[in-house]
């Protein structure tokens, strides 16, 4: 449905994106994940036909986004970075206007407006002026205008920005509900957003796609090199020896030590590439008579993923994906990954 090949965009001499290639199948949700300034918005704008690319091609439903702009415009719903709203209109009047310029027929218009209002939980506020809405509501009106004409392809640039946690959940469910009938591409800098809503993910950094994966594979990959923080009681040197000999440990670092009335507590960070690193660690500690006060998995942040993806060789990543597929890391922890990127 969406095919992007070798897309690049220069602003003056500065490349915003370089040689981006990916595709989205019909009915699929693709997450476009990257830190701010990575080129997400630029890519979205090119896809929507708002900006011309400097090189490469982007096709939506077989139409080139710039050459056959009108064909593409009829088939997309687009939420830009800042929701495009007329502040002096009511929500309902605004959606009616959007439906009109998107070419929804007069007979369908009221239905479609109602549908969008309902989907975005705006029905009760339909007569409210957009000027009087909070950021979260405005964002939802922005999403409503992107779906009001029932487009086959929906492009959402940071759809959950400015929403409170409750609304974020609603919007994510809404987006998930769009899959199947619609092809969705959404950009975000929040990792859990991708793991919760998207089928596939393209990771972009410094204007380049550094990885494209199914979402589960990304999550697996992230936990592959997971780290633990431990608080132990006992001889520091003994602890060091024991920890360093645990199977799969690649890196060991003592963070600090504090004297307590019952002895010395030492704090450690252990990095392991074993799939069941947690189990290995606890078993080793118990066997050697070290007391464990706290053990915590250090959650991989988006920064870690980028670092990993941008510093390591691609082959290594591929091997790792194949090697590690421990199922427990997929579900339970996926939700609580740190929303760490500034």
């Amino acid at each position: 449905m969406i095919e992007v090949e070798h897309l690049s965009k220069l602003y003056g001499a500065t490349p915003a994106i370089q040689d981006i290639t990916f595709s989205v199948e019909s009915g699929e949700i693709l997450g476009f994940l990257g830190p701010n300034g990575a080129g997400k918005t630029t890519t979205m704008r090119i896809l929507s036909g708002y900006l011309p690319a400097s090189g490469g091609t982007a096709k939506i439903a077989g139409f080139e986004v710039h050459e056959q702009s009108m064909e593409v415009r009829q088939r997309i719903g687009y939420l830009p970075e800042n929701p495009p709203l007329y502040l002096d209109m009511t929500i309902e009047a605004f959606l009616d206007f959007v439906a009109r310029i998107k070419g929804v027929s007069a007979g369908d218009r009221a239905n479609r407006v109602n549908y969008a209002l309902e989907k975005c939980n705006l029905t009760e506020r339909r007569k409210t002026l957009i000027r009087k809405l909070s950021k979260g509501f405005r964002q939802r009106v922005g999403i409503a205008q992107a779906i009001v004409h029932d487009p086959p392809v929906i492009i959402l640039d940071e759809p959950t920005v400015g929403l409170d946690p409750r609304q974020i959940i609603d919007v994510r469910n809404l987006i998930k509900g769009l899959a199947g009938d619609h092809t969705v591409i959404l950009s975000t800098h929040i990792l859990p957003e991708v793991s919760m809503t998207c089928d596939r993910v393209a990771i972009i950094n410094r204007g380049q796609v550094v990885a494209t994966n199914r979402t589960e594979e990304l999550t697996t990959q992230m936990f592959a090199g997971s780290a633990y923080e431990l608080e132990l009681d006992g001889e520091i040197e003994q602890a060091r020896t024991v920890l360093s000999q645990v199977k799969g440990v690649t890196d060991l670092e003592q963070l600090s030590s504090v004297s307590h009335s019952d002895g010395i507590h030492s704090y450690w960070r252990v990095r392991s590439d074993a799939p069941d690193a947690g189990r290995e660690l606890t078993i080793a500690l118990v066997r050697n008579g070290l007391h464990l006060y706290e053990m915590r998995r250090v959650q991989a942040s988006l920064e870690d993923v980028f670092l990993q993806l941008t510093t390591e060789e691609k082959t290594e990543i591929a091997e790792r994906i194949e090697a590690d597929s421990s199922p427990e890391s997929l579900n339970s922890d996926a939700v609580s990954i740190e929303e760490g990127m500034p």
Partner: peptide, 14 residues
């Protein structure tokens, strides 16, 4: 200023 030009420019309207 409001960014609504982006809406118009990506709608099937000349």
């Amino acid at each position: 200023k409001r960014g609504t030009l982006e809406l118009l420019a990506t709608s099937p309207i000349t």
